[in-house]
Amino acid sequence: MAASVRVRFYATARLATGTAQVELPVPGQGISARDLLSELAREYPKLRRVLGASRFLRNDRYLTDLAERLAPGDQFAVHPPYGGG
């Protein structure tokens, strides 16, 4: 089975991609969050605008540095601005 990162999309990110999650193939040594976002923007052009306003999580932890690397098997989430209440 190819190495991959599971990416989950919420709210406007889900609407822009048309899916709640995808498995994105990544190299065995992993991929930086920045490079992963570039791949997502290439794959889903409508997502670009959403990404600019979103927060990102790796394994349920907010990313503070897009240079952080994701390893195969990690989970990545795209959180557009929140709107509870």
């Binding site: 557009p80 929140y82 509870g84």
Partner: peptide, 14 residues
Amino acid sequence: LIEELKRSVPIWKE
């Protein structure tokens, strides 16, 4: 409580 909930909790409405 309510301001932080709206600002920082991953909940979205449609």
